[in-house]
Amino acid sequence: MVDDRLSIAGHEFKSRLWVGTGKYKDFAETKKAIDASGADVVTVAVRRVNITDRSKENLLDYLDPKKYTILPNTAGCYNVEDAVRYARLARAAGVSDLIKLEVLGDERTLFPDTAGLIEAAKILIKEGFIVLPYTNDDPIVAQKLVDIGCPVVMPLAAPIGSGLGIRNPYNLKIIMEMIKVPIIVDAGVGTASDAAFAMELGADAVLMNTAIAGAQNPIAMAEAMKYAVYAGRLAYKAGRIPRKLYATASSPIEGML
């Protein structure tokens, strides 16, 4: 695959693995893991600056904005008002109109509040944001998000941070077939085979954080994910053989004694 770029609303990405920057031991480890993953999109959260201890380093000092697209999120927002506020703050602090929009509906599952998501997305799109919505694996909601102007849809594979892998491959497949914009599987991946599976289904990219940051060796897992996403993408483009119940011999019978 010489040129297999992912294009979203005029932004071009080389990597089909996108990574979050939370939960690492320190910024040095974050940077090493991101480098090993080959990701060129990294997500960040928006939070209060620590004004009492200014000696604390900033994550962005470690991430060259020329090398990575910084994708702010609205993580931790449980209603439309908060999500819109955080998105506006992210734009004021940042460099672009890109926002990964999360409107969460429940603290235990961190499942998205899809009604709130659509409402917040409408407001932000009207204000010129490029909204990348974190949503459920619901094809109808995915279509609605596209209808209101989202250039990409990001359905979950399983609850955030759960590592349960692809829980509903059939819904994800339906979303990939129905929806005419890129699909990024976001959240729930546990290990490399999950990432490969998502890509084999036809996902355009995979976004993950905990599967890498929470691994015993995050940097090695980041590299594993890079190859898994690449292999899954190649397999998807190559076209797999159909499943059959019985064997088909691969060696010829002819010439046998």
């Binding site: 979050g20 920057t21 997500t43 959260a45 928006v46 600056v49 962005l60 993580a75 941070g161």
Partner: peptide, 10 residues
């Protein structure tokens, strides 16, 4: 406010 580490989860 500024950016901190955060991902598919927070």
């Amino acid at each position: 406010l500024s950016f901190i580490g955060g991902g598919a989860e927070e």
